[in-house]
Design a protein around this nucleic acid. Structure first.
Lengths: 224, 224, 224, 224
DNA sequence: GATGAATGAGTCTTCATTCAT
DNA sequence: AATGAATGAAGACTCATTCAT
């Protein structure tokens, strides 16, 4: 039988990964059986094992792929956000993360929790994740540099600390949204803004659409 | 063996819970087998099942107990922190969480990730957790009220948003510390302070710029 | 501590046996756990094991006791029935068996099936049962002798065969009643009578109450 | 191993069912472990569970299959027996049941007792069995109609009662043979015949009286 | 290359029985 | 004598992985 084309192979791989995430999200990483994934993928057991040597492998690939998709997205937001003031920048990042789905119908936030948990006991996964978050945090540090240079944060601030705190807010949003579920990017943005010297948005009502490129529609019901 | 005293019974229960957490932390919730826990507890299978009806039950009890211990601790920190400025308050809360171990040798932060992950697929656990975090967030809102009343945050700030953002920072610290591992309470405190009007700590200015960004060990000796 | 009186001991034993049958009847012999019986008896595990050395022992005792109660009853019916014609005698025996409950609320018929099944794999039980049924069949043979001597069955009939067939009808009634549930003593009596030269009961409608000492009330809906 | 043929699949199923019955008959339904059956079948645990979802399922299938085989057999005997006089017909039915083994080396009679016992606590099995016995009894009723029409039983007999009594004799034979073990079809036939107007078998008179009551071995050579 | 039936070690859980108090 | 907590050997069932076809 003729070798399958590389393109087809990649498509198959994605098909399996899709199926896997769909199951993982519904049942968690460990409660999902290979059989669940096999059935969801529409392939045979042998076929799936032709692409991934073991369940662990499949989990690793699934998480890595998601992370890599996320990376691409973050690079793009960070570029857009380079010149924005802190609270706004964080809000935009969070907003994009909130909206992000590596594949149709998948909630990155819930998936992240699964990955973090698994990283506790899977060193390879842990390493991959650390690298990812360190890279991201480094980008946040560059952002912090901009903020400092433009006087938006204290001139003597330790940029590493700022990056750490900023990353914490972003990650914390993911947890809060996944577990409690009533948090939005704007809550984080407005909350953070309250801490700062940055004046409240003057345009809050009149020009909401212009102020942020991301979905601010939900803001209407505000004002306590 | 006639009827065991309530005290002894509770002690046995704790003994099992201790064993369980020790295993869970090492191997994760699902990769831990009942046999692991049974052996770690020093009891027999039957005895363990006399205290917890199923593995799921044991997991639920383990998480719930941790949460409840955490609750007690948080109540006490929140009282201590009521009059402190934002960054300082957050730093103190985070610091206590960082140091917290419900039982000797257990890292609450790693445990939290396991619980969050499990809450995705265990409705009872999810509900318990939501209640816990909502309660905590409500306390943070009271704190935010103090901040506002004392002019430490914007007078027109939405307190719910402030509480949400504050909770995010705290939860995000847990993730960052558990996954990357190089974050401390002071990083969060200092990072957050950089955003604010709150003056920098007098003993900070001179050394901040020199501090290595990833090696934070030196900071430990700083006065807080 | 003083020795318990023999009377009290016997009462305790009966209490356990009662509890056991109640469970057995509901759940079957094997699906019933010792704990079920212990709880139903209101005693402690140790106490129950003070009376019966093992579950097998308890089963054997339970069946044996029932059989022995049944024996007493059968002796009395057989005496009453000595002079009655075959179909009537069988009907009366069956009727008494149908109504028999060794203990309040227990259906002998259902219990019998459990015992028979268990006898397949428990030699001691099997032997006990064989002895019981052989004794009963021997009584039926004496009955058959009366029938033959009074010309109610063929003079040249093999009395052993008659006893075997008679026993079969009685046992078969138990099965049919336990499994299908729509059979009564009168059906058996009337059905058997149809085979014989014995004229149909002339008193079928007018004097039902007198014709049989046992519950004929249910006969009303007859006549196909 | 690609898709297995339906035929092969059915053969494997039968292989498991054979193994199961072999164990059940030896040890009873509940004392038989899945491991016993697995080992007896020569397959693996997983394979067996691929054909039967649970032990309960396997028991149900085993009983149902036996019942269905029995059904086929009974249909054929009933056809053969339609014109025979009562005692003869019963004797023939019983004789065929006695000889029947759904699979080589299995004793239907012992198996029946196990099934009846199990039906007490398994509603699905109970229903299946009731349907089976009701069908069979209905066939017996048709037989009874023939008997009545040909004057072999009382013209005014209630056919339902006759069918009930006839079924009782058949079922009772099964019990008696399984528990005591010294009964044969001829005993039942002869015993029943003694009750009736049906003339004794011409070859019977001379030897009947001499025949030992419990050793029926000699009877085998008698012409039927 | 693909299939999916088969494998069998490993999981959770039960329960008859014991024995320290 | 009585108690009931503890034992631990099974038991039913699962599921990642393989390999004959």
């Amino acid at each position: 039988m003729p070798k399958i084309s590389d393109q087809k192979r990649a498509a198959r791989r994605d098909q399996i990964l899709d199926a896997a995430w769909s199951c993982f999200q519904r049942q968690g990483l460990h409660a999902t059986t290979m059989d669940d994934i096999i059935r969801a993928s529409g392939l045979s057991a042998g076929a799936v094992y032709g692409y991934f040597a073991s369940k662990e492998d499949l989990i690793l690939a699934a998480v890595t792929t998601s992370l890599s998709n996320l990376q691409v997205m973050l690079t793009s937001v960070l570029a857009c956000v380079a010149d924005k003031p802190p609270a706004r920048a964080v809000e935009d990042i969070v907003s994009r993360i909130d909206a992000f789905t590596s594949r149709k119908g998948f909630d990155l936030k819930r998936i992240a929790l699964l990955g973090w948990s698994e990283a506790q006991r899977n060193p390879k996964l842990r390493t991959t994740m650390q690298a990812f978050y360190l890279t991201f945090r480094n980008e946040l540090k560059k952002l912090a540099e901009n903020w400092r240079d433009s006087g938006q944060i204290s001139a003597s601030a330790n940029l590493n600390d700022v990056a750490k705190a900023t990353l914490a807010i972003v990650l914390g949003f993911v947890v809060e949204a996944a577990i409690i579920g009533d948090v939005e990017a704007t809550s984080i943005g407005d909350g953070l803004r309250a801490f700062s010297i940055e004046p409240l948005r003057p345009d809050k009502d009149s020009s909401a659409a212009k102020t942020s490129s991301f979905n601010l529609a939900e803001r209407k019901s505000r004002k306590r």
